[in-house]
Amino acid sequence: MIANGAITGVAQYTDEVPVTKVTTAITVQGPDEIHYDETIACIHCARCVDVCPVELVPSRLAALSDQGRFDECRQMNIVNCIECGKCAAVCPSKIHILQLIRYSKESINRAYEDIAPKESSNLKLGCSCGSD
């Protein structure tokens, strides 16, 4: 029940985690403070849109990430997200918007890692299925 920053920090499952120079805060929550929320469908209340500091549409980004449509997420500027976690904090449906957005950003970054550098002259561009 120890978190590293109450909004975006990672909960630790043991108290033997070392405190390093990147540890900014340690928050202790009692058992009654933990949220056991059940996610329901998005009700389009637009509270996440109102609180977003970088003018994204988190509800739509979460839905697209959930369906694995990362290219559309990228077109909607998901990389602008600063992961402040406000959208997930105000969500009445208790959707894990922050996790979904992180998942999508991670997938987009991985997709770029797989592209070979441009300098390799013998790089053959084509469909990944093997046919030309």
Partner: peptide, 13 residues
């Protein structure tokens, strides 16, 4: 000692 963990954010409306 082990703890119950949950996903961030840990404080919600």
């Amino acid at each position: 000692m082990t703890f119950t963990i949950s996903a961030p954010p840990h404080r919600k409306d």
